[in-house]
């Protein structure tokens, strides 16, 4: 007998004579306490994210690349990992071209194995999109794909995320429903609620444990 059938048999014996419990999931319990007026959503998200050391800026969809340049200049960073095949990646590249920025634009255009050393140690910052955010918990929703791979939001010490104000949902349940997550999830879906942190020594909060030391969110107010 295999381990699988032994385990399943034992469990089935344990259940003999009982009936499955009904599905009485009450969605009100996870939605009603977490609803906000549209104009309050951004503020709620902002407050929660700032409370965990996230830098949040409200910008416009035509001038955000400038803000990115300013953020990098402030920190005197030398390069930025972007996704050239995305709309925002192209917008950024155009701005870089026009402004003659000396910050090097890097593209995640080959498998990780081909440039692991560089990706792990030499990338200063990255910029990715998001597919929305959750006001209740102050979380960004990232849906990594071929163009914006998983490690883009994890390895660089600074991660800049673009968020459309119109894509902020009240709570996780509403987000799942709107985007119909149960119909199909990507290889790796992520909720990101601040820069990497730990409190493992004396419960003293320290940022930049293994992931980004800094998270900057640019909220596109008119998008």
């Amino acid at each position: 007998m295999s381990a699988r059938s032994n385990i399943l048999n034992k469990l089935r014996t344990g259940l003999a004579g009982s009936i499955p419990r009904p599905d009485d999931f009450d969605e009100r319990l996870v939605t009603e306490p977490w609803q906000y007026a549209p104009e309050d959503r951004v503020m709620r998200l902002r407050n929660l994210m700032e409370a965990v050391h996230t830098e949040v800026h409200q910008v416009r969809s035509d001038d955000w690349p400038e803000k990115v340049a300013a953020i990098l200049a402030e920190r005197e960073l030398g390069n930025l990992l972007h996704a050239p095949a995305t709309v925002h990646g192209q917008q950024l590249a155009v701005h870089w071209e026009q402004s003659g920025s000396h910050v090097q634009l890097l593209a995640y255009d080959r498998p990780v194995e081909e440039w692991k050393e560089e990706l792990f140690w030499q990338v200063d910052a990255s910029i990715t999109g998001t597919v929305g955010a959750i006001a209740a918990t102050g979380s960004l929703v990232l849906w990594p794909d071929r163009h914006e791979p998983r490690l883009m939001s994890l390895l660089p010490p600074l991660h800049i995320a673009l968020l459309k104000a119109s894509e902020i949902e009240d709570n996780l349940y509403a987000m799942m429903q709107r985007q119909n997550w149960s119909a199909g999830l990507p290889t790796n879906l992520l909720l990101v609620s601040g820069p990497s942190k730990t409190a493992d020594i004396e419960q003293v909060l320290a940022y930049g444990a293994h992931g980004p030391k800094e998270l900057v969110v640019l909220i596109l107010e008119d998008a």
Partner: peptide, 24 residues
């Protein structure tokens, strides 16, 4: 556990790297 509304990362893994993906 920690009094946090959510942890910094919630990581939902539904499969290995797909043919066209670059990491994972």
């Amino acid at each position: 556990a920690l009094g946090q509304p959510i942890t910094t990362y919630v990581n939902l893994i539904s499969g290995p790297r797909k043919a066209d993906e670059l990491d994972g």
